[in-house]
Amino acid sequence: MGVASPGFTSLNGWYFMVNESVFIILIAVGMTVVLIVGGIDLSVGSGMAVAAALSGQLLLDGVPMALVFVIVLLVGVAVGLVNGLLITYVGIPDFIATLAMLTALRGVLLIWTQGNPVLGYVTHAYGVIGGSTKIAPYLTVPMLLTLAVAIAGSVLLRYTVLGRHIHAVGGDGDAAVLMGVRAKRVKIACYVISGVLAALSGILLAGYLSQVSPGTTASGYELMAVAAAVLGGASLSGGRGSVFGACLGAIALTVITNLLSWWNVNPNWSDVLVGVLILLAALLQRAGVIVATRGGQTKRPRLADPQPVTRAPQSV
């Protein structure tokens, strides 16, 4: 028994754990981007649920699958845009704005469905897209999509102007503005990215589960996304984080749960252990910052290719 037993560490064992993790990984990537820019997006769980229910219902209504996915992703864009606008232009704190969005989206979903689940929409093709059916041994469509998103997210954050601006705004927003970064636009872009990834995750989850319950589907996912991002090294105070780390964080959460189940440990200990790990991750980050400060180093994020921002400073 234990982590070394073939069932747990076999390729098949890892396949199931990774396939189970992809929904969290997708929103954790979005959450990481938002955390780096200095925000937090608590609406992702409800965004996933709305996307999942909308996908199912539109398919039941006979809308072609490709069009369904486009519509749902656009809804994700809209949710992110509203979050971003509320935070940057209306001035509502990130936590409050996205918390309100979390509640509002779930409420809209409950009103729309009257609490009834969306059922009977899953076709074989949608099952394949959702990952309940493999496309090759140990491989599903969500795994491929998640890999693509993770690579794109890493490239975005490390090698693009927007990525550098995201780090700059999250590291020191005022300084970034003085350097000519359009901080509000950058922040809105981050929330749009998070909204789209939540919608994508919702689309996949609907195919995976074959049923969407408006009150419970993806409930609490926002906290798992935060936990995965923090475990992966993202700082809640902004300016730091990594997509690769978020992926590992999400997988770690799944592995912990599975491992405790494997050992037949009381499942309540899983929550305790995850909580302790998050605290440890936060403490390690804090210790790292303190060490860096004492050593006279900057706490700015390490960028692959530090370059000056591309816009001239605005006149004051």
Binding site: G7, F23, L205, Q211, W262
Partner: peptide
């Protein structure tokens, strides 16, 4: 909830 029920059952059954 569904997904956590699925995860729990997968974990048990794979064991």
């Amino acid at each position: 909830v569904e997904d956590q029920g699925l995860a729990a059952a997968l974990s048990l059954l794979r064991h």
